[in-house]
Structures are given as C-alpha cells and as structure tokens.
C-alpha cells in the first residue's frame, strides 16, 4: 500500500495473508492477500497462483497484523482446495477473470473461528456496486512504493475512490484494457494506491451500509501513478462462479 497508514488486523479482520512454503524449510515467503468470505473459504486473485498452482505449496494465516511473525489470536491453515478461474487470461497490462478461491483448514481439520481479529466480509448483491466516487478501503502487506523491493512488516490500509468505467477507459488512463468485469479506484491526488504484494487483497466498499468485498486487487501500471488507477476484479460479477464452487454453503453472506 502506497501512502495510507499502518493498522491492526482488528480493523480488517477478514484479511488473509497467503504465504509460499520454502522447499528448503526456510521462513515462509509472503505471496498475496486474500479475504475470508465464509468460515472455510478465502477469495484471492488467480494471478498470484497461476505459475505454481499446487495447493500444497501455500499456507494461509488469519488474524495477522505483522507479517512473518507470531500474532496472538492468529490462525494458520493449509489449503485444502485451490480453485483458479478457468477463463483467467493475461493481456498486455490487464488480468482477466482474476479471481481465485482457497478452501482452508487447520492441521486438525477446522475452518476459521470468529474472534476480535477474524471475521468474514460480506459479498455484494449480484451486479451491485457502490456508486462512483465512493470511498473504499484497501489493505495489505504490499510495497509502500513502486521502487521498493521490501514488504513492510506491519499491515497497512488506505482509502481510494471508485472511478467510472468511462473515466478509466480514457486513452490516457487504460483505454480498452478495461472491461465491465473490472473496477477502477484511485486517490484524486494520486497519493495512495495498492501496489505489488497487495494482489489478491480486498477492496471494501459500503453497500446498503454494510462493508462489502467489492473488488480484489488485480493490476495497474506502477503504483499511485497519475492517470493510472488501481484495477480490481469486480466481485459482484463473479457471484455465480463463487456459488458454483462454494455451493450454498451457509455462512456466505450475500
């Protein structure tokens, strides 16, 4: 996250930290963010996993304010299922259908338990998004600037505004790289944005007065670059896909 502020996971209790195991047994490598959408399921981005699509290579933590550290109240999970979108595609800049589902379970076969630092995030109503100009929250352990090469130790969050497709499709923004299954969001002063390492994490907008997972951090040109908004997978357009994989499992809050 470029700009914004450091926070604690109690402020974003649905945030999931997804790590890659190290073959040599060394420390885990932070990979991407995710969002807890029901007790057993985390939503993230397919581009995070497409090159190494083996569920055994990943570990998911909930309740973490500090990366690669023990956080009181955290929960650690193996990935029981790793579901990548079958129509995922990479363009020059854009990622299409950039959504993934991870079924999580502890070493004793449990799913997530609610606590001060662990909570699910609501899914949007079908094809319903917050209005253009709405303030939405982003969260992650991603880089604090485009030129950084280290991730911050502490969780960050910031606020960006939803941008219309019309504005985002302008030639000096992203032109035809943008389609209706994506959402664009940015800071009017181009001072804060999601960045590398925030991929898969949440864009939380209020819909009907409820914090809702409206977007999944997907792609963008640089970070906090003028006329280059962050681009997010538009979750309200993927509810059938989510449903088809999670089923009518209770606890999915639509």
């Amino acid at each position: 996250i470029v700009g914004g502020e450091f926070t604690v996971v109690e402020n974003q209790p649905w945030f999931a930290a997804i790590y890659m195991k190290n073959k040599g047994g060394g420390p885990l490598s932070f990979k991407c963010g995710g969002s807890l959408i029901s007790a057993c399921w985390v939503a993230s981005a397919t581009h995070c996993f497409i090159n190494i699509p083996n569920k055994e290579d990943y570990v998911v933590y909930l309740g973490q304010s500090k990366r690669n550290s023990y956080n009181p109240g955290e929960m650690k999970f193996e990935v029981e299922q790793l579901i990548l979108h079958e129509d995922y595609r990479e363009d020059t800049l854009a990622y299409h259908n950039d959504i993934a589902l991870l079924k999580i379970r502890t070493s004793t076969g449990q799913c997530a338990q609610p606590s001060r630092s662990i909570q699910t995030i609501c899914l949007p109503p079908r094809f319903v998004d917050a209005p253009v100009g709405s303030d939405c929250e982003i969260t992650g352990f991603g880089q604090e600037s485009h030129t950084d090469y280290l991730y911050p130790k502490n969780l960050k969050m910031s606020v960006v505004k939803l941008i219309s497709h019309q504005e985002c499709k302008q030639p000096h923004y992203y032109g035809s790289e943008i389609n209706y299954k994506m959402l664009c969001a940015a800071d009017p002063e181009w001072k804060t944005d999601s960045c590398m390492g925030d991929s898969g994490g949440p864009l939380i907008c209020n819909i009907n007065d409820r914090p809702t997972l409206s977007g999944i951090v997907s792609w963008g040109r640089g970070c906090a670059e003028k006329n280059k908004p962050g681009v997010y997978t538009r979750v309200s357009f993927f509810l059938s896909w989510i449903h088809s994989h999670i089923g009518e499992e209770n606890g999915l809050a639509f």
Binding site: P13, W14, A39, P114, Q119
Partner: peptide, 22 residues
Amino acid sequence: KKPSSVDQRGFQCGQKALRPRF
C-alpha cells in the same frame, strides 16, 4: 432469531470488534 448476516458459526460478515486492542 439471529439477524440474517450472522451465520451458524458465529460470523457476522463485515462486523469489526468494537475497537482495536491498542
């Protein structure tokens, strides 16, 4: 009857603890 957004595992989507621990 629990409000609709509370599921049987006690999750209340989108709800945050009243205030952060510190």
